[in-house]
């Protein structure tokens, strides 16, 4: 009889230990996940990987909800929340890498576009000299020269924008300049070709 009572007490103690051993708040995991999210945010994830960053924040909120669910219970189990937080931390690191890759990609794209536009505009300056000037050409050429100067100024402005600024805006600016320079290039080449074929 004595043995039985002792056995029951032992069983109850073991069960209680098992039930409460998972009940410790995963504060370290929470801090790590939040730190990883902040790092991704500081890397520019909000701008350059907005969807991934939003998903990340949503996952973090879901984790915090899960923690509160467990805290509401008599016997808490944070195992699931810990696993989720670990996944969030890993995901945040991935988002950070993704952001850095996007930034690097944008920088390359901007530099390429800047170089292409500069050479296009230089070519335009030479083409203007060769372009036919008669029958209204002179006034058109004057306007084109003005446009070429504006593109030059625009290129200088874009080049002066620091990389810490929104690179998407910088890319939009340089793309517009490139399009403009390309249109002028085409216009000039067509005019020269027409003029030469008539001769």
């Amino acid at each position: 009889m004595k043995h039985r009572i002792f056995f029951n007490i032992l069983l109850l103690a073991t069960t209680l230990t098992l039930l409460t051993s998972c009940g410790k708040l995963p504060q370290m995991e929470i801090d790590n996940a939040q730190l990883a999210i902040t790092e991704a945010q500081n890397a520019g994830a909000e701008l350059y990987a907005p969807e991934a960053f939003m998903a990340l924040q949503d996952s973090m909120n879901a984790c915090l909800e899960e923690i509160e669910v467990q805290k509401s219970k008599l016997f808490k189990n944070f195992k699931n929340a810990s696993a989720k937080l670990l996944a969030v931390t890993e995901n945040a690191a991935e988002v950070k890498l993704q952001t850095e890759a996007k930034i690097s990609e944008l920088k390359t794209e901007i530099n390429n576009a800047l170089n292409e536009t500069t050479s296009l505009n230089n070519e335009n300056k030479e083409l203007v000299l060769k372009a036919p000037k008669g029958k209204g050409g002179s006034t058109v050429l004057m306007a084109i020269k003005g446009e070429i100067a504006t593109i030059d100024n625009g290129l200088a402005e874009v080049a002066a924008i620091p990389d810490t600024e929104n690179l998407n805006n910088k890319l939009a600016k340089v793309t517009a300049l490139k399009e403009h320079a390309s249109n002028i290039n085409m216009e000039l080449k067509t005019a020269i070709e027409k003029f030469q074929s008539r001769r």
Partner: peptide, 17 residues
């Protein structure tokens, strides 16, 4: 003319956005 050219470039940027 410069002001107009700048405006035209901004218009092109607006179209890209």
């Amino acid at each position: 003319q410069k002001q107009y050219s700048k405006g035209k470039l901004l218009l092109a940027e607006a179209k890209i956005e």
